[in-house]
Amino acid sequence: MISEVSVLYFAKGAELTGLKSETVKLPSELTTLQLWQELEGRHPKLSVIREQVVLAVRQEYVALGDQSVSLRDGDEVAVIPPLSGG
């Protein structure tokens, strides 16, 4: 199963990909690490932030790892570099 999700990039992530957002077809069931690897595969420059990044799936943080996620059409995924608000 494949889902079409929108992926958002911010800060350093947006600079590295040259994108603020894109629509991507991804496997509907995968781990958070595999999700990251899919994105890094599309944008190899993202590798420089691999050690300092988490993802947000449907606006909830997930660390890169073996936790599985289910993606549905229209879901929102975001690449979240280290925060610097305040």
Binding site: F10, A11, K12, E15, Q52, V53, V54, A56, A63, A78, I80, P81, P82, L83, S84, G85, G86
Partner: peptide
Amino acid sequence: VPIWKKEVYETEEASWKQNKECLWSV
């Protein structure tokens, strides 16, 4: 809170900051 700050320096270099409180920062 997912907010990011970029500092632009006199040298025209710029840097995305990282809060030490953020668990996945350096």
